[in-house]
């Protein structure tokens, strides 16, 4: 548990999956924190000072020392507060967890983001590419309740991006990227996640989140040629 004297602050943004994963981890560990909502369209001097290299949220500030990049922050949280471990203990299992986390961020997220900006055949191709990647997660979930195995862990926290961002966005974008017929295990896993109190508490409220995404989409469409 956190020391009384610990000062923990999170610079984040309520609708960001990267920021929310830090809230999930801190909540899971029972670490109290101050949340500082950041305007990502007009970056604050504090953010620029604390993350001069990437200038991005989330930034965790622990007793005055800043840490950025969400996967790095999650590992830091797990190294610092050891109750309710997020990563497995076994080195091979840890390596696998890191592998899938990286896969979610560098492959699924990067590919899925392109769906929004494309139309017609190009969109179809990106949707197919995203599905090919998601199929690896679908296979990982065979006979498992969570991506971490029996219990909720690191990869599940990271992959909330799929469960609550990608899968919420698809209704608004108008393409079913993750149809239940193709991905029954991913859909079952989302249901399992919804049973977890920390998740219920830490994901953005659906209505507000959907209106936010809708507004963002409108802006993007407006900008598109």
């Amino acid at each position: 548990m956190a020391e009384r004297s610990d000062e923990v602050k999170l610079l984040g943004m309520w609708a960001s999956p990267f920021s929310r994963r830090i809230e999930i981890a801190l909540t899971l560990k029972g670490v109290p924190y101050d949340f500082s909502e950041q305007d990502i369209t007009n970056k604050s001097p504090l953010l620029l000072q604390l993350n001069p290299v990437h200038k991005m949220i989330p930034v965790l500030v622990h007793n005055g020392k800043p840490i950025s990049e969400s996967l790095v922050i999650l590992e830091y949280i797990d190294d610092t507060w050891q109750n309710n471990p997020i990563l497995p203990q076994d080195p091979y299992e840890r390596a696998m967890a890191r592998f899938w986390a990286k896969f979610v961020d560098e492959q699924i997220c990067v590919t899925a983001m392109k769906v929004v900006g494309k139309i017609g055949e190009e969109r179809e191709a990106v949707v197919e590419a995203t599905r090919d990647l998601l199929m690896f997660l679908e296979k990982e979930l065979v006979q498992k309740d969570f991506l971490g195995g029996e219990s909720f862990g690191f990869v599940d926290i990271v992959a909330t991006l799929v469960a609550f961002w990608l899968m919420r966005t698809e209704e608004i974008v108008g393409v079913k990227v993750v149809p239940v017929e193709k991905f029954p295990k991913i859909h079952r896993w989302v249901k399992n996640l919804m049973e977890i109190n920390v998740i219920k508490k830490c994901i953005p409220p659906e209505d507000e989140h959907l209106s936010y995404i809708r507004a963002r989409m409108e802006k993007l469409k407006f900008k598109a040629p």
Binding site: K65, L71, V72, I73, E75, Y76, P91, R94
Partner: peptide
């Protein structure tokens, strides 16, 4: 990078590659 961490965790005694302090570890990973 995952392999380096795996190697360090599997054979921890000789020449530790990641620092033991959590903040220093985070900096290295960053």
């Amino acid at each position: 990078l995952i392999q380096i961490e795996y190697i360090d965790e599997t054979w921890p005694t000789k020449n530790p590659l990641l620092p033991s302090d959590p903040y220093q570890r985070a900096q290295a990973r960053f």
